[in-house]
Design a protein around this nucleic acid. Sequence first.
DNA 1: GACACTAACGAACGATCGTTCTATAACGTA
DNA 2: TACGTTATAGAACGATCGTTCGTTAGTGTC
Lengths: 201, 201
Amino acid sequence: MGKGEQTRQAILDEAFSMASCIGVGALSIGVLAERTRMSKSGLFAHFGSKEELQLAVLREAQQRFADIVLRPAFRQPRGLGRLRAIVVNWLSWTREANLPGGCVINAAAAEFDDQPGPLRDEVKNGLLALRRVLAETAAKAVETGELRPNTDVDQLAFELEGIYQVAQQSRRLLDDPHADRRALVAFDRLVADHAILREKE
Amino acid sequence: MGKGEQTRQAILDEAFSMASCIGVGALSIGVLAERTRMSKSGLFAHFGSKEELQLAVLREAQQRFADIVLRPAFRQPRGLGRLRAIVVNWLSWTREANLPGGCVINAAAAEFDDQPGPLRDEVKNGLLALRRVLAETAAKAVETGELRPNTDVDQLAFELEGIYQVAQQSRRLLDDPHADRRALVAFDRLVADHAILREKE
DNA sequence: GACACTAACGAACGATCGTTCTATAACGTA
DNA sequence: TACGTTATAGAACGATCGTTCGTTAGTGTC
């Protein structure tokens, strides 16, 4: 990795953790330069525009999400276990990644849902892709016979996303120490509703 | 209502709808003055500081929420019907209120969850109060015998909030036209899980 | 008609914003 | 060691930020 690439990654690291606290939209090149002990112009040269920097942060977030949440879960055999692994990793990924201020992606989702442009598109595509992964993982649990054949996997992905969002809000804003537990309770109930009943289990 | 109060309300109306699009944190006194055809200083005098203006917007949001979502629902007799009325009003309240850019409160929740101060406190208290209302409404449905006595009403409020959040995101960011229907499906299933079973219903 | 009070204005403040330009280091290759 | 390339710095730009100040209208009261 060349020197430039190395610096760029260091900037991105700092920007990533900053964005997690104040939001991608509130990122400031001046403050970021100060934190990385660079000049504004030197830092700026790595991205060409503020928007490009913000996009880079969003892409970085998606990549880390895939590395921390999805990839490990996919080492589980397909089925309900894999789906549950995703949820468990998902709930704790802001602690694994360098995200002192919570999930960048969901914050950006609320921030840009009304502002057309590349940033909104990036967030939208990322979340659509995630929904697809969730739905497909659920579909595999149908194949394995763990979920009922008539399960609406898109509805399931929808509800999973809801569980995640409220868990984040409860933990971060409302300081609820039981948020994760509540999220898992919700997940188990949700899955049980679509599970194929086995006697005595 | 005196002249001053009238102007202040007009400013607040505009700020409210602006905040819904760009977020409470991104409100700008200059832009707001332009939109209301006032001078920056004239507008500023009504609030004394930007933070005070932001607080006023958040309080306005909570008041409108109570007027549009809660008050009408409480005209229903206590029980599941009332709970469902809250959810239905809740899902559509951004259309009733002047909220072209979605729910201000939830956007602010994501924005300020990491920034201590009066704004975070205001949002947190508002959302805690909402959770309380939801839980108490559910508790009344236990009293009427519609929900099981051992229902965890706080867990239920938690999950309701999740359903709302993902519905917002699906509708606003992902442009999903079925978001509200999915939310109601989720609600009905959630309630059914805690309902007292009646034969043939 | 003088007076107090409120509402709004216009100008200016220092700070910070994103961005541009030019210059200077540092580095890789010959 | 010289040269081209890349990486970073420094200074300045015009714009906008929140805020302050002094002043001017409008309004009701004695």
